[in-house]
Design a protein around this nucleic acid. Sequence first.
DNA 1: AAGCCTTGCAACCGCGTTTGC
DNA 2: GGCAAACGCGGTTGCAAGGCT
Length: 254
Amino acid sequence: MGRKPSYDNNGRKKGAWSPEEDEKLRDYVLRYGHWNWRELPKFAGLARCGKSCRLRWMNYLRPNVKRGSYTKEEEDIIIKLHEELGNKWSAISAKLPGRTDNEIKNHWHTHLKKRLNQNQSTTNSRMIIEQSNNGVQSVSNKRQEFTPKQVAEDLDLSQPPILESSSSSEISNLSYDSALLCDMMNSVMDDISSTPLEPLMESTDDFWTQPFLADTVYYNQNIDDLSSPLVEGGFLSPYDLYYDDGLDFFYPSY
DNA sequence: AAGCCTTGCAACCGCGTTTGC
DNA sequence: GGCAAACGCGGTTGCAAGGCT
C-alpha cells in the first residue's frame, strides 16, 4: 500500500518508504534524536523532506508503536474520547499507548464511524417500527438524530460506576427514549463500565508525555548494538555527543 | 481470467501554533 | 511586538490488495 515513489522539483523523494530509508532514519534518530527535522534528512543521508521523515518516524518507526488490530477496549476508549474531544486525534492518541494519531484517525474513519452509524440507523429503524406498531409518539421520540454524544450525556458516561450498579428496576423507570438509547450503546457501555479507564490512562501518561525520553531509553538500551562507526552508517553526526549527568537528552555543540 | 469496485492505510498538504531571534 | 522558521495537527489523497461480478 501507499504511494508510488516520485521526486519533487527539489529532487526530494516522495511516496512510499523503502526498507533502506527506514533503516537509515531509524538508525539516525536512535543515535542522535530528532534535533531538527528540517536538517535531519541531510545528515541522515536521506533525499526526503523533514516533514516526511518526522511523519515516518512518528507513525511507523518510533519504538513502541503498536501495529495490528485494535482491541475492543481500545475502540471503546477511542469512541468515548472522541465524544469528549472531537477530532483531537493527537489528544486521543495520548491516551492510547502505542497508537498514533494518524492510525487512530484512519481507524475511526474506516471502522468506528461506520459502526456508530450502523448502530444509529438500527436504533432509528427500530423506533420507527415500534412507533408504527404502538401508534404512540412520546415527546422524546420526536428527536431526529441520536448521536453518541447525546447518549453519553443522557446516561452520564462520566460516572460508569453508577451505570454498573443500575438495577433492572431502575432501568425500567427510564423513559422509552432512554431505554432505546441504552440498548443502542449497550455493548459500548458494558465495556466502559467494566473497564477502569482511569488507571489505564494514568499509566500511559508517563510514556506519552515523554515521547523523547522513551526514544532515549530505547537508545540507551540499543546504542551498543549499533556498532558500526557513525560515518560508516551512511550518515553524519550533527554534533559531538555528550551527556550531562542527570539530564536525559543531548546537547548540540556546533 | 479480467475488469471494476471497495476498503484500508500510508503519506502528503495546508494551515495554525510555537519558538527563537 | 514583529517576523521567520520549525513544528504539529487534522483533512485529504493515492494506491495496493482483496472482493465482487
